[in-house]
Design a protein around this nucleic acid. Structure first.
Lengths: 202, 202
DNA sequence: GTCTATACACTGATAGAC
DNA sequence: GTCTATCAGTGTATAGAC
């Protein structure tokens, strides 16, 4: 049999995939699917070109994996914030704070940038956009019941909670676009401004 | 000299460039810069491959021209709406109505899709993002004085009008993203929802 | 598991006939 | 002005040595 233990083998495997994941996330988030080459990913990861193809069958498979994982992580983080105790509007305030501070300026900014690229370029990858849209709708469904509660409390706008959730996340994506421009304006975006999309008029 | 009259020559020229423009707009708006090839543009325009290069020196030149023209048209349309008589909040209502109805669902939807691609892929075209950001800031400057007036009227949120203008247009771009998903939600977005980003709390 | 070398299709751009 | 043919470079993916 192999002189390497099974667990050591496993470790090499996960280490390599982790390196590929981080490199691909960075490159795809910055330059998009068509703007990134497998050569760039290999170089960024520090591994050889062929090794990337040892772990992933194609460039598209890498992209799908990165996008799926990023979305799942984002949804999970959102779900945890909304599941904490407190009234509906407080939860929305917490989420908005998280999104503006942590996500738009912090480390997980790459996630939102990646989703941006995925949505915009989804049409050119057959079957991808439908898959992506399904995942994003799961996002809406996490937020909409909280919005419905806030409506009952009289603090959120009337209207279909699902539509409002979609509008809210659209605004978040729009703010990620603002971040790309790097004009300094994004520093002045407050959680309050984001919450305004959902706030009742009077 | 040439058997063709000068004006006839001119007409062929403008006809061809117009065809290239429309084809490139459609392709770039749908598939982005890196996702579109010159072959596709030529095919879509109905002209030959070589002729595209007769009118434009490079793919990048085509892209820059399309993006610049689209942005200029959008800014011009916005300026015209905001210059009409009426109080500040009415102007914002008119603009929001225009953006939601005409732009996000109408023909000029391609413009916003194109800008989306341009911003997201701008990093991979040297010097392009800075140029683009400059143009978009002109956009903000058209809207911000109207917001300032609405603040004096007590109907708009307090805060830097320029930042609010940036947030407003970010939301519009976010809604264009929603349109890409084609889930039907975008049909339920109202001008009122868009205006909510700027509306005073109470 | 890791690497280098290579096959093969496609892309941007050019040349040159008409 | 319009077209086809072609070049040089790059991209994805694979083969095969270690």
């Amino acid at each position: 049999m192999s002189p390497r233990g099974q667990e050591q083998n496993e470790q090499m495997r996960t280490e390599a995939t982790e390196k590929i994941f981080m490199a691909a996330l960075k490159m795809f988030a910055m330059y998009g699917y068509h703007g990134t080459s497998m050569k760039q990913i290999a170089r960024q990861s520090g591994l050889s070109y062929g090794l990337v193809y040892h772990y992933f069958p194609s460039k598209e498979a890498v992209f799908r994996h990165i996008v799926d994982t990023s979305l799942d992580n984002s949804i999970q983080a959102t779900r945890m914030i909304l599941e904490k105790p407190g009234d509906a509007w407080e939860k929305i305030a917490d989420l908005s704070s998280f999104l503006v501070k942590e996500t738009l300026n912090g480390d997980s900014f790459l996630y939102f940038l990646l989703i941006l690229h995925a949505m915009v370029q989804g049409k050119s990858i057959p079957g991808f956009l439908a898959h992506l849209t399904g995942k994003i709708e799961a996002y809406y469904q996490v937020l909409s019941p909280v919005i419905a509660q806030a409506q009952q409390d009289g603090v959120a706008l009337p209207g279909d909670p699902y539509v409002l959730a979609a509008a809210y996340f659209s605004f978040v994506q729009g703010l990620a676009l603002l971040q790309i421009q790097d004009s300094g304006i994004e520093q002045h975006i407050t959680p309050n401004l984001l919450m305004n999309v959902l706030r009742a008029s009077k």
